[in-house]
């Protein structure tokens, strides 16, 4: 699938960044952002995925949401590379503030500092956060 631009047959690709800022459970935001991420990749957009604030808990190892009667969608993050989504970032400060390290995360990510992340966001065409 692709999006045709106004005046050419070439599909139009934009730099999308999805910014996950909320814990994985308790609200539905994380799950529904994940749907947007997958669809954007299916539409061949240049997708970037960032976890900051409590959003870093979305990719923490050892989740067991079945006790909350919720689906364990953390497995889907492991399938992201299958959708061509390889630009995954975690904000260093958010991770450290929560006592986490890269070893606690279920997928390989690029750890990026707050200032650098700001500059990266600046370079995006579309930034969506939840």
């Amino acid at each position: 699938m692709s999006v045709e631009s106004d005046n050419s047959a070439e599909p139009k690709v934009k730099r999308f960044m999805y910014v996950n800022r909320k814990a994985p459970h308790g609200t539905v935001y994380a799950l529904e952002v994940l749907e947007m991420v997958l669809i954007s990749a299916m539409f061949e957009q240049d997708v970037h995925l960032t976890f900051l604030d409590d959003g870093v808990f979305q990719i923490k190892k050892g989740q067991n949401p079945s006790v909350l009667e919720m689906k364990d969608f953390s497995k889907t993050y492991r399938a992201l590379d299958g959708y061509g989504i390889e630009k995954v970032f975690v904000e260093k400060e958010s991770m450290e503030e929560r006592g986490l390290s890269q070893d606690d995360l279920i997928i390989p990510v690029e750890i990026i500092g707050r200032e650098e992340l700001g500059a990266l966001m600046e370079s995006m065409d579309v930034v969506l956060s939840a």
Binding site: I39, M42, D125
Partner: peptide, 21 residues
């Protein structure tokens, strides 16, 4: 319709502005 309509709107528009969340 589907979520693809959101992606398409973001691509076609100069600015996508989000309200809520």
């Amino acid at each position: 319709s589907g979520l693809g309509q959101m992606v398409e709107a973001a691509v076609l528009a100069d600015r996508l502005v989000t309200f809520g969340a």
